[in-house]
Design a protein around this nucleic acid. Structure first.
Ligand SMILES: [Zn+2]
Ligand SMILES: [Zn+2]
Ligand SMILES: [Zn+2]
Ligand SMILES: [Zn+2]
Lengths: 139, 139
DNA sequence: TCTACGATCTCTAGCGACTAGAGGTTCAAG
DNA sequence: CTTGAACCTCTAGTCGCTAGAGATCGTAGA
């Protein structure tokens, strides 16, 4: 029935120290303890930790995951807030993609313009030395 | 001629504590000092720091910037190594863009599939709870 | 020349999200 | 009952800065 932190680690695919960190960070509830003081877990903990791991893999911040977990405790309520959190995260991901896209273009241009001769004439060095050689802005 | 760290900060657009951090990190050379022990800089330092700032803005790691700065000290040599460092960084940026693109698709699909009803039926929650609901892999 | 006050100095600590290790205790198989 | 793997807590380290405390320096006005 009740299992150890190592078993939980295997079931959810999360390292043992990370589980303890999540408990200290308030993502996992304080686990009940055995007589000797070791943490004991149940099926619900494995599900919660799997949820946390997957949300982290999808880039959600711990704070957002806390909100999501709180909301799932009330299955009867509207999921509007949950969807809004996900949509907010999606917008943030899109923003980062756009930003990295500008970066990629600038890097590609800089490399493409270099004649690959001496360092003194390298276009990469010139561009890094002076933002005026950049096509657009970057944050 | 020689100017203070505050003046260097204004010229290069880098905060004063960050300049001291760069010195400790080996990106900037140890600055000569005034009689009272304050750092004094010259034109070359402002150029070097501007280079560092711009390279950081373009996402280069401090370690890569150190290599670039070392190489620019030998303007007669071939710029092949410099271009290789830049190309390596470009590949890394492209890798991150691709990874974020997969993330974006997964998030958009997850949100798009939700009927926006009760939390108990929310597709976002279902997907976060079980990676089997994801279309592809994510790192 | 004295004084005031902003700028600079060093040192320490904090951020976020973990990860690694030391040194000590508990659990479970044989 | 013994053994040894797994567990416990606590501290410290990662990276690239950033923010303070408390002391000292530099410079301009009176
Ligand atoms: Zn080149
Ligand atoms: Zn630029
Ligand atoms: Zn929903
Ligand atoms: Zn998934």
């Amino acid at each position: 029935m009740a299992f150890s932190i190592g078993e939980l680690s295997r079931r959810a695919g999360v390292k043992v120290p990370t589980i303890r960190y999540y408990e200290a960070a308030g993502l996992m509830p304080p686990a009940p303890r055995s007589d000797g003081g070791q943490r004991r877990y149940g099926r619900a903990d494995a599900e919660r930790l799997t949820f946390i791991r997957h949300a982290r893999e999808l880039g959600f911040e711990p704070e957002a995951i806390r909100e999501l977990l709180d909301l799932t405790a009330h299955p009867e309520q509207s999921c509007a807030t949950i969807d809004a959190i996900a949509a907010r995260h999606l917008r943030e991901v899109e923003r980062r993609i756009a930003s990295l896209g500008r970066l990629r273009d600038e890097l590609a241009r800089m490399i493409g313009e270099c004649g690959h001769g001496r360092i003194g004439d390298c276009r990469v060095v010139e561009t890094l030395a002076d933002h005026a050689h950049c096509a657009g802005e970057h944050p």
